[in-house]
Amino acid sequence: MMARLESLSAYAPLDIEENNEGVVVVAEVPGVKKEDVKVSLEHGVLSIGGERKPQAPAGDARGLVREHRLGKFQRTVRLPYEVDAAAVSAELSDGLLRIVLPKAEAAKPKEIVIR
């Protein structure tokens, strides 16, 4: 009923999960090489940009079906709170880009002791 064709490298669908420690952003970027992805953080906005370049087989190969989207993609996410920029980490494996953004100390929930 709601089947949709998923060639999303031009779009890079992502999930955003928040826990007490921070935010985890997971984006799908199949066929994209590590050196072709750029992740940046500026004024509380996370940017994921990159390019999916054509892979082998090229040359003498004749394309029968072409559904993969090649080319540049760009996503931006406004983060719900301040993060510890120095502790942000990103990892690319199996076509998934996983960015972990720990909350800044100031943004963590604090319990106030009543005297």
């Binding site: 998923e6 997971v26 087989p57 190969a61 004749r62 394309g63 993969h68 076509g95």
Partner: peptide, 24 residues
Amino acid sequence: AWIPAVDIAERENDFVVKMELPGV
């Protein structure tokens, strides 16, 4: 209901099917 995208190419001696399956 999700359909992974494919590319299918024919070469002189073989076919190459590529399917996007991130995280599978």
